[in-house]
Computed example of a mutant assay.
Amino acid sequence: MKPTLIAPLAASLLALAALPALAEAPLAAATFKTQASADAGTASLSEGPEGVVIRVNVSGLTPGWHAIHFHETGDCSDDAYKKSGSHVQHGTKAPHGLLNPEGPDDGDLPNIYAGADGTVNAELYSDRVTLSGAEGRANLIDEDGSALVIHEGPDDHVSQPIGGAGGRVACAAIGKVE
C-alpha cells in the first residue's frame, strides 16, 4: 500500500470505529424491579430512523422463555405491576400478537430467554414505538411515560389479551436520558 493512502485509510477506520459507540448511546433507560429485588437489571433504549433498539439485562427470573411488552404507563409502584396499564397504542387498537393476522399491537415484542441462572441478556427491536414522538408510532416518552413488563411465561403471539404469558414478574419504568 502506498504511504499516501495509509493516513486517510487510518482516519477512515478510526471514524468507523467511533460510529458504534455513538449509535449505542441510549436515549432512554429503565431499571427493572422484581418482587425479590428493586434493582434486578436494566434496559437501554436507542432510537434509529425507523424504530427503537432495546437492550435488556435482567436477573432473578425463572429459567426459560418470558414475554416482554411495552406498557402504557411508567408506573411500577404496585406489587403486581398493574399500574403500568395495558400495552402502548398510538391510534386504533390492534389485537395482540406478533403472529396474529390482525395484529400486532404497539406493545408487542419477541420473547426473551432466561438462562439456568435466571439472567437475560437480549437485544430487541420495535418499529412500532418512538422515543422522540415520531409520527405513526407509540410514544414511550409521553406525559405519563411507559414501562417494560416481563411476564412469568412466554407469549404465544396470538392469544388475547397477552398471549397466555401469565402474571407480571418484572417491571421497569422508562425514562429519558438527558
Rank of each mutant, 00 (worst) to 15 (best):
H157Y: 14
E152N: 13
G133F: 12
A80E: 13
S146Q: 13
G145W: 13
Y125K: 02
S159W: 06
H151Y: 11
A122N: 13
D105W: 05
D142K: 15
S126A: 12
W65P: 03
L109K: 14
G136S: 13
T92P: 03
G115V: 02
G163R: 12
S146H: 12
D156E: 06
V169S: 10
C76R: 09
K93N: 05
V53E: 08
N139D: 15
E72M: 13
A147K: 03
E143A: 01
L109N: 07
I162R: 08
V158F: 14
G163F: 11
V56F: 08
K82A: 09
D142F: 04
H66T: 02
G60Q: 06
D156N: 15
V53D: 09
D75K: 05
W65A: 10
H96M: 05
P101H: 05
G107A: 09
V120K: 10
G107C: 04
L99D: 04
D117R: 14
G74N: 07
N121Y: 04
V149D: 07
G85C: 07
G107R: 07
L131A: 02
T130I: 11
H96V: 01
V120I: 13
G64C: 09
P95Q: 10
L98H: 11
W65D: 05
C76P: 00
S146Y: 05
D117T: 06
G103S: 10
S126Y: 12
A138R: 10
H87T: 04
P154K: 15
P101K: 08
H151S: 04
N100H: 12
L98D: 01
S146V: 01
Y113P: 00
V53L: 08
F70V: 00
E143W: 00
P95D: 09
V52A: 10
G164L: 03
L99E: 04
G91R: 11
H69L: 13
P95V: 01
L131F: 13
P101Q: 07
D78C: 01
Q160C: 02
D105C: 15
F70E: 05
A138M: 08
G107V: 00
L131S: 04
G97N: 08
L148T: 00
G85V: 03
V129S: 07
L61F: 08
G115M: 08
G103Q: 11
A94H: 13
Q160L: 14
T92A: 15
Y113H: 10
V52S: 11
T62R: 10
G60V: 07
P161H: 10
P161I: 06
N111A: 05
A134E: 14
H87I: 02
E135I: 06
I54A: 08
G97W: 12
F70A: 03
K82G: 02
T92N: 09
L124R: 11
A138N: 11
V129Q: 10
G163N: 13
A147E: 07
S59I: 02
N139K: 11
L99G: 03
P104Q: 08
T62W: 04
G153S: 15
H87D: 15
G107T: 02
T119S: 14
E123N: 05
P161E: 14
H96Q: 06
S84V: 00
S132Q: 14
R168W: 07
G64S: 09
G91T: 04
S77V: 03
K83I: 00
P63N: 03
E152W: 06
S84A: 15
G91W: 11
A67Y: 10
G74A: 07
W65H: 06
G163K: 12
S146R: 12
H157G: 02
N111H: 14
